[in-house]
Design a protein around this nucleic acid. Structure first.
Lengths: 354, 354
DNA sequence: ACACTCTTCGTTAACGTACACGAAACGTGG
DNA sequence: CCACGTTTCGTGTACGTTAACGAAGAGTGT
């Protein structure tokens, strides 16, 4: 049926035979090294194209003793939030997959509350000899410093989870925050009727993270600007993440104005769920972010209505793979890889893959 | 920080050295072949465990000239429905990924309207020498025949898209139809108010496929049984898939009783969308299945409200990978791999990965 | 013509594993 | 004690590629 092409049967030997040269010469043009006459090189190139030669990756990486090292710089999972566990898992999984190909990945964890720990780790990375870096540029200023150094060292880097526009990263892999806020608004549009009130809740004590939340809120508000509806948007900022602080603030906010729907702009939605459950306000619809255990529990109980999630584990996986494909296969990488925005409810959370 | 284990540096040579034997002997116990004294075997086994030896896959498959062949038996993409294009793409992608490992996959396509084409292809597969089969068992009787033969030939097989319970397949990879209908009901529960009417629409001329739709409808109805709500469920079966027939039937159904929401149990939802657009009934909410171009278009236009999708491409990919992991790595495979049930709306369809 | 440097290319030993072949070592029966 | 079979093991080649080494030829200056 399909053409009778000999699959993978052609190797350097066959090319060498046809070109009347030795495999050494063929190897030189394949890895475009010097020392081949232009005429010979062209002849071999021609034959390679003719044969649609595909190098045998196994043999290639077996023979090449050079090992590729990738550094990863992301926040440690804190009691604060378990979010980074998922990307880390994706990173580990990818690392395991490409370990056989002679790629090792070292993970450096910094403290989200401590800019200096970030800087310290960047120094460690620059000291060692890596061929690529995957990083979460949470602290903008410090990150700019770091990637400036990367550039002088011709060290390719990939951003994960948050982007710094205008910098020549190989790729950005992460959420489209604006769009995810927009989507949340879309969902709320479905489940509300005119006259109702929506409360937007930002819970975060980190300044740089707060920036994330604002981007989502922006998308959220944009939706209702573009789709006018007679609902009222309230908002409360909570700068402490412990339950008591959240409770107090929420109490006040709900006292000021009743809410039919609460939109929490990050994964702390389970804290709000706890509050609603405790106070028996289970008629309030609740939407938040991220497929974390506490959130899933509340989702199952019907306290949280929707979770929005952007596959953090896959983010980590893709981040490593982008570097791998670039470094090993010389592939060109998409500059922006926005993750799909998943909607999770009580009824489809069972088989969700983070 | 982590233990100073030499990664992948240990090979058969090191094991042989420690055991005071040659690599040949080590090789014998690794591939548990005969001809090793029990005492020696145990000694080597011990060392292997000690060193946490991981064989080098590349070298392994390089040296072993045996090639693994996988057969795939799925419906051809017809004008009828483009659905199977997605799984096929996933299969092709997976095939490309493992081609380097000496695995070839041959795809056999049958006609969804012709049972005999299915049988013919199964014969072709059995005639050739495959080590594994991935199939969509759409025709139950014929499939049972086929897998009976597979069993006598010790040919492992994986089901995709639809399952035949009780058969010893390596794995089933596909949707949980019941649950996806249940989810649709859940969504409709959000967007309806008491007193409204929902119309269930089954569009399919194939008998075996119809069975799929019923399973979804079952889940759908179960939801409202478990969550009683004052809404009325109507239903119409449409046994011809051309637009004119659908139009006629829909007209009649909507004439009988007004509908606030229409739930189409498969990917033909775009046909209904077309009807709604043409007749200006755009106030009717519409929910259906699958991330196909026509559906996406209608989704973007706001005619379709929700699409439910179960990653058909990933299904194909996972199907091949299950076989690969089993045949090459001897991994144990999960018996049932239900795909996540994704909810797609106008606002999150951009970055959706099928 | 000689010594020398460059360019161009062939040869060969790895890489880690699989597998065929054959060599010891150890019986066992006569 | 020899012939023969069996068990147990070591050796060598192969897989397709990389990369170091060095040989042959061309060019240059004296």
């Amino acid at each position: 049926m399909q053409k009778k092409n000999e699959p993978t049967l052609v190797g350097v030997k066959e090319i060498a035979r046809r070109a009347n040269v030795s495999i050494g010469t063929v190897d030189r043009v394949l890895n475009n090294r010097t020392g081949v006459a232009d005429e010979t090189r062209n002849r071999i190139l021609e034959i390679i194209k003719d044969l649609d030669y595909q190098p045998n990756m196994m043999a290639r990486r077996l023979a090449s003793k050079k090992v590729i090292r990738i550094a990863v710089l992301i926040p440690a999972v804190s009691g604060e939030t378990g979010y980074w566990e998922a990307p880390l898992n994706g990173i580990k999984q990818a690392a395991a997959e490409i370990r056989d190909y002679g790629v090792t990945v070292d993970v450096f964890l910094f403290d989200q509350n401590d800019r200096s720990s970030f800087t310290a780790k960047t120094k460690d990375i620059l000291k060692a000899t890596y061929q690529g870096v995957l990083l979460a540029p949470m602290f903008e200023e410090e990150s700019l410093d770091f990637i400036a150094r990367c550039k002088t060292q011709h060290l390719p880097f990939v951003f994960i989870n948050s982007d710094i526009a205008g910098e020549e990263s190989l790729s950005y892999i992460g959420p489209n925050l604006y769009q995810s806020g927009y989507l949340a608004a879309h969902l709320i549009n479905y489940i509300t009727v005119p006259g109702q009130r929506v409360l937007i809740v930002n819970i975060s004590k980190e300044l740089d993270l707060h920036h994330h939340l604002l981007r989502k809120e922006e998308g959220f508000r944009a939706y209702f600007q573009e789709h006018p509806k007679a609902i009222t948007l309230d908002k409360t900022d909570i700068r402490k993440t412990d339950y008591k602080s959240v409770k107090t603030k929420l109490h006040k906010a709900l006292d000021d104005a009743h809410a039919d729907v609460i939109f929490v702009t990050n994964s702390r939605v389970s804290t709000v769920a706890h509050y609603l459950e405790e106070t028996g306000k289970t008629d309030i619809r609740l939407i938040g972010y991220d497929f974390l255990q506490d959130n899933i529990t509340a989702l199952r109980q019907g306290i949280i209505d929707f979770l929005i999630c952007q596959k953090p584990q896959e983010q980590g996986h893709k981040g490593i793979m982008a570097l791998y494909n670039y470094l090993v296969h010389g592939a060109t990488i998409e500059r922006q890889q926005y993750m799909p925005i998943d909607i999770i409810t009580k009824e489809n959370c069972f088989n969700y893959k983070n």
